[in-house]
């Protein structure tokens, strides 16, 4: 089992996301430490991209702020390298294909391995295009995370069979952002996943409240939260890490309480 798998061994996982460099890299470091201290099991680190196609307005805004502050891929690699000295939970990068490709795919993924990045989520790389990056990822022990969506239907089995690390289950149609209600029949998606792979699956897109996190983790192996955290950064800026810590604790507690229920996967 890859290092990412370990994040799911202690029970249901809580996976927070933030965009690196929003509002600045020092705040990102402090926020990551707060996340770890308050029970995050795995952290998704967003590398900003100028045109983030899968993001809603909240994370789009974070991408734009980080880039206008001069954040680059190299600055983020250095940050991860520094954080790795004190933090052992898995880190995955969440970014777009061009950020990796343009840096030089091999150079980027090798550097991921060196600094201690355990996986990579590229929302604009579907199953059909995985081999653009997957061989290099295998070479450097970086898991290329697969996603399934509410529209995947006949594709779920095929995607699950090739999945590495954990499987990212997209809860709803559309882009990232908080939602008052999640209506997709996720339990049946998860059960198809289960028939085809042993790796854990976590649900993301639209989750912001402890109730949602509890419900989502009860039917899967964990919950991923992005926009709600990025919104705290937008609101409190350099003061955000403490607020993020409190929020992560609340969400982690909710996720753990979901563990006591019989899981369908």
């Amino acid at each position: 089992m890859s290092k990412i798998g370990e994040a799911f061994r202690k029970g249901k996982a809580f996976i927070p996301f933030l965009t690196c460099g929003d509002p600045d890299i020092e705040t990102t470091k402090r926020a990551v430490r707060e996340m770890v201290k308050n029970g995050a099991d795995l952290i998704e680190l967003g590398i900003p991209f100028s045109d983030p196609m899968a993001e809603g307005p909240v994370i789009q805004g974070a991408n734009a702020r980080a880039l206008s502050n001069g954040i680059t891929t190299d600055i983020i690699f250095d940050m991860v390298s520094e954080l790795r000295k004190e933090i052992s939970i898995p880190f995955v990068f969440m970014t777009y294909a061009n950020v990796v490709f343009s840096y030089g795919s091999e150079r980027f993924i090798r550097r991921c391995g060196e600094v201690g990045i355990d996986g990579m989520i590229l929302p604009d790389v579907p199953y059909e295009e995985r081999d653009e990056f997957s061989d290099i990822c295998d070479k450097y022990d970086v898991d290329l995370i697969s996603m399934v969506a509410p529209t995947s239907e006949n594709r779920i089995a095929m995607i699950a069979k090739e999945a590495k690390g954990f499987l990212y289950v997209v809860s709803s149609l559309g882009v990232t952002g908080t939602r008052s209600e999640i209506t997709t029949d996720l339990a049946s998606i998860v059960s198809i996943v289960r028939e085809n792979t042993d790796i854990p699956c976590a649900i993301g897109f639209g989750i912001s409240t402890p109730e949602q996190a509890k419900k989502m983790s009860a039917i899967s192996d964990g919950a991923i939260v992005g926009s709600a955290i990025v919104r705290l950064l937008e609101q409190y800026k350099t003061e955000a890490p403490e607020h993020i810590g409190e929020y992560v604790k609340k969400m982690k507690d909710a996720v753990m309480s979901g563990s006591s229920q019989p899981a369908s996967c």
Binding site: M53, A54, A97, P123, D124, V125, P126, Y127, E128, E129, E132, M147, V148, A149, P150, T151, S152, E153, N154, R155, I159, V170, L173, G174
Partner: peptide, 22 residues
Amino acid sequence: MKKGRFGAHGGQFIPETLMNAV
């Protein structure tokens, strides 16, 4: 050759949500 390629170019670099639509 893979679907929709023109030499090294082309492909389907889109979110999973759109794959069944294309």
